[in-house]
Nucleic acid binder design. Structure first.
Lengths: 190, 190
DNA sequence: GTGTGCTGTTCGTCAAGTCGAACGGAGCGT
DNA sequence: ACGCTCCGTTCGACTTGACGAACAGCACAC
């Protein structure tokens, strides 16, 4: 998820624009009033909300303060679907001095916790997992066997070395497709 | 949390500066190299890391992409022996309804962050890692091959499915003992 | 009708962020 | 001593964001 966000081509200026306008209208504030409270000019805020421009940190911060929302909320990108990194694909991400390579799979979001689990399963009925609390994300790195895992309707098949992460605040499931299937499961919640 | 952040007087430019430099040095990247990857000039990055300036969203975003961290991490204010769990030992820890089992490897300590890395290596010289900042702990789950890893003088040999964690605020090293060795590395720091 | 108060937009001007180049310094092989 | 490469900083020039004012549109009162 983080990687997806970080790997996005450019900063979501339109998303920021929408977020600001959404938070503003939710509070029934006029553009001018918000600009006054944030100590900005109306023109600056107008351009920002129209999606044009590239605000500075100070400008965005002032808006976050005036709106009473955490800074990060203005730069959030919508949660998206399952992300899969096949075994071997990661080499393209980073390269260090041979014979070693390391790739950052997923940086820890601020305020999040990550519990490390080891799961094993034999072929049979899927393990049905309820929806966890909002914001929960699960990371799965397969060590052995084959798995079919993911949110209901968006399961992906994973083999040894494959990595996937997906939102866990929706119903999801795990199915072992081969005997002795094992995986590391990282439960991330905020 | 939100309130505290939002109520802060001004944008923590110095905190941003420190965060960028911290994430950069954590990756052993030079200022120029990071600037190149982010598509920025060295001067811009230099001023940013010195605390002077007020970067635009595009600039900070480019840095977040190049560093592989979520955008929000750049704008926030801010030890023990080796433990090994051999493949298969974990089943004894917890048992759920067959054919499924799950074991909590390591719960996330309060305030800690965990970054997920995927490391691969071929047999050859060991990767020497410097001592990280105090409190750093590394978790390693082998997915393929064989590894010799751990703090200097206390390395352990690990095979597929094996898990180990050890303090990383001391010099430590990783050596691949078999071709195509791979592992998930969880960097935990506070 | 005209006046007032608000909405959000689009101008020109100025300040500030960003860039490229040149700088001094450290490390290393010759 | 050199030459070379990389480090990170400082300089001037260019680009761009932020400001203030004037703008059109709308609603309501008189």
């Amino acid at each position: 998820m983080e990687r997806t966000e970080a790997a996005t081509a450019g900063p979501p200026l339109q998303a920021i624009a929408d977020a600001v306008r959404r938070e503003r209208t939710r509070r029934d504030l006029s553009l001018g009033e918000l600009a006054r409270r944030a100590g900005l000019s109306k023109s600056t805020l107008s351009q920002l909300e129209s999606g044009a421009g590239n605000p500075s940190v100070e400008t965005l911060w002032a808006l976050a303060v005036a709106l009473g929302v955490p800074f990060a909320r203005l730069v959030e990108t919508p949660v998206q679907a399952v992300r899969v990194l096949r075994s071997g694909e990661s080499a393209a991400l980073t390269a260090e001095r041979a014979p070693f390579s390391s790739a950052l799979l997923a940086a820890c979001p601020p305020g999040a916790r990550r519990d490390l689990h080891l799961v094993t399963a034999e072929p049979g009925p899927a393990r049905e997992a309820h929806a966890h609390i909002p914001g929960t994300v699960e990371h799965m790195l397969v060590t052995a066997g084959r798995w079919l895992a993911g949110p209901d309707g968006a399961e992906v098949e994973l083999g040894p070395g494959d990595y996937a992460c997906f939102p866990a605040d929706l119903p999801h499931r795990y199915t072992a497709l081969a005997p002795g299937s094992a995986a590391m499961l990282v439960m991330e919640y905020t």
